[in-house]
């Protein structure tokens, strides 16, 4: 298949997965979790390499996944035990993880290119060429497999658990009072975000992942106020359109594809915010910021 088409498909898969789990994230006001996971995943990579002794993709992926899920979980615990803000707990966890990871790399893994920069910047244009070899046959780009899996997880979890998710994200306490374990559902959301993010990092890069998780949803929220389902759908659409826009611009300007898509998301959001704010100046704030 022509690599250009693969590029679009990969962008599409990443956009869909991130829009789904990203909306759940945004609605819980934990938008910075994506950024945090992108940094603490490095620790997972390093530990996987050190423990397994080889630079093999499945192990590293698993390591990053465990780190991501661990970050989400430990942050919640830290927030509840120390009674601090969610953002502060995130800051503690991801900086500590990243620091340990960098130290481990400089001590034990210098010679091995763990591709830390790749993790951060990522390059989606290379992804179509990074294929999985199974036996003798080429199964196609690895990115498509991992992203499809992530998308499947997102779709399955969200459709099956729609009621619970909506209820526990909206009114945690009231649901707790009638016996529904709200914390478990919140943890499930965080795990979903971790799976999505880690699956997308390698092909799409951390910057774009964070942008995809948060920006389309907030753009959608400029227009849709009353329905969570519609918010998700509109953010999917925005995500797809902007991905195409970004890819085209990156070809034109010869810049990195992932970064260009993310920039497009950002710029579009700002423009739409400005327009929306100009047409409907917001009502007085209930609380001072």
């Amino acid at each position: 298949m022509d690599s250009i088409y693969l590029l679009y498909i990969i962008a599409l898969l990443a956009s869909l997965s991130c829009a789904l789990s990203g909306t759940l994230l945004t609605v819980q006001k934990k938008a910075m979790l994506g950024d945090a996971i992108s940094h603490s995943a490095l620790l997972g990579l390093v530990l996987a390499y050190l423990i397994s002794g080889e630079r093999s993709i499945p192990y590293m992926f698993l390591g990053a996944l465990v780190a991501g899920i661990g970050t989400a979980y430990v942050t919640e615990k830290l927030k509840n035990t120390l009674h601090i803000q969610y953002d502060a707990a995130l800051g503690v966890i991801f900086t500590a993880s990243f620091a340990v990871a960098v130290i481990l790399i400089s001590q034990y893994a210098r010679q091995v290119d763990l591709d830390a920069q790749h993790l951060l910047f990522g390059e989606i244009a290379l992804a179509p060429f990074d294929t999985i070899l199974f036996g003798n046959s080429d199964l196609g780009p690895r990115a498509i497999w991992t992203l499809s899996l992530a998308l499947l997880c997102n779709i399955v979890v969200i459709t099956l658990c729609w009621n619970r998710l909506k209820a526990t994200l909206f009114s945690t306490n009231s649901m707790q009072a009638i016996g529904i374990k709200a914390q478990y559902w919140q943890q499930l959301c965080s795990i979903l975000v971790a799976i999505t993010a880690v699956s997308a990092f390698e092909s799409v890069g951390a910057i774009l992942v964070v942008a995809l998780l948060v920006i389309p949803t907030n753009t959608a929220k400029l227009f849709v106020k009353h329905s969570l389902l519609q918010t998700i759908i509109i953010s999917l659409v925005i995500s797809l359109i902007t991905s195409i826009q970004g890819i085209l611009i990156s070809f034109w300007l010869d810049t990195a594809v992932a970064a260009t898509i993310a920039t497009s998301l950002f710029v579009n959001f700002l423009i739409l915010s400005l327009i929306q704010n100009w047409i409907y100046p917001s009502k007085a704030n209930i609380q001072t910021s």
Binding site: V27, K29, N163, R164, K166, A167, L169, F170, S171, N173, S174, M175, A177, I178, G179, I180, K221, V224, K225, H226, S227, L228, Q230, T231
Partner: peptide
């Protein structure tokens, strides 16, 4: 047992309609 919390504990910007909130009463 039905519990109704104080009103300020809610995120009023959540994209949800009145009917969807009332439906949550059945989820138990």
């Amino acid at each position: 047992i039905a519990y109704v919390a104080q009103r300020q504990e809610v995120d009023w910007d959540f994209p949800i309609t009145v009917r969807e909130v009332v439906e949550m009463g059945r989820f138990g």
